[in-house]
């Protein structure tokens, strides 16, 4: 009889989206799901797990271990351990790019800069903590002000020929600046590009960037043009993993696999 298929789950419960990733013993992603986190993290994570399992074509019995991360990491019923999103993003990105990297993760509510060395060791991290500037929430707020769907922003920014520079780093002040620019008849696409620029600058001023930069998070997943702009601003090559929004969940799943392997090693009779 063939051995049952073993899968490892990683759940990243972000303030805005919940992501679940399933990997197999070869570290391959075989299922994933993303949903709005909503107000019941336990239910949302269960729902994502079911969807990811369906994609993998298997059931809950295949799960050999699960780790949760993110804002709602303590609310995941199926997880055996928790890790911070910093650890998980680092793990997930190093999986794709095993070298000294600096990760810039732009999430819905915060952004993070994580530095890892060539062996995958985390050497430093920073989170923006004080306000929405430089996060997805900033873009959402501004899309509302401009009365455009969030998903149209990337396309609009690409069309810009004369970017509007916004000076303030306060979301509320930026909102006023946006209104002022609308009043002055500036084109929406030029304002949107200015907003992208503002997000990048908020991040650039958080740290210095010497290693290769990897971009992750939902904002970059949906606004690839921002990475192009960042490439210009930083004057560096920028890498983006295959699923930029899933690196946290992938990292969590890799931790689950690692824990299981460690446990197995402990049980082996050498």
């Amino acid at each position: 009889m063939s051995q049952a298929r073993k899968l490892y789950a990683g759940a990243d419960i972000g303030a805005s989206r919940t992501k679940v990733v399933l990997i197999d013993e070869d570290r391959k992603i075989c299922g994933h799901a993303t949903e709005k986190s909503g107000t019941d993290f336990t239910q949302t994570s269960e729902r994502c797990l079911r969807l990811a399992l369906a994609m993998a074509g298997t059931g809950k019995e295949s799960i050999a271990g699960a780790v949760s991360t993110g804002y709602g990491r303590k609310n995941v019923a199926f997880s055996n351990d928790t890790k911070t999103e910093i650890a998980c993003h680092a793990r997930g990105c190093f999986h794709y790019f095993p070298e000294a990297i600096t990760i810039i993760d732009i999430g819905g509510q915060d952004n993070k800069i994580i530095k890892i060395d060539g062996t995958g060791r985390r050497t430093a991290f920073k989170m923006n903590r004080k306000c929405a500037a430089g996060t997805g929430a900033f873009l959402e707020e501004m899309a509302m002000r401009l009365d455009i769907p969030l998903e149209d922003m990337n396309g609009l920014a690409e069309l810009s020929t004369d970017m509007v520079k916004l000076g303030s780093y306060c979301t509320v002040f930026s909102g006023t600046e946006v209104l002022e620019n609308i009043r002055h008849g500036k084109k929406v696409e030029d304002i949107v590009k200015g907003l992208f620029y503002s997000v990048i600058i908020r991040i650039v001023e958080m740290d210095s960037f010497t290693d290769t930069v990897v971009f992750t998070g939902g904002v970059i997943a949906h606004n690839r043009f921002m990475a192009e702009m960042a490439r210009e601003i930083l004057g560096k090559e920028i890498l983006i993993p295959e699923h930029p929004q899933l690196t946290g969940a992938l990292g969590a799943a890799l931790y689950a696999l690692h824990d299981d392997e460690t446990e197995m090693l402990g049980k082996m009779d050498f």
């Binding site: 985390r122 050497t123 991290f125 903590r129």
Partner: peptide, 20 residues
């Protein structure tokens, strides 16, 4: 202050010390 941000930061920092 944000308690959640503090907690995540501190946990991530101790994780980093632990892993290194």
């Amino acid at each position: 202050l944000s308690d959640e941000q503090t907690r995540t930061n501190v946990e991530a920092f101790i994780e980093q010390l632990e892993e290194n």
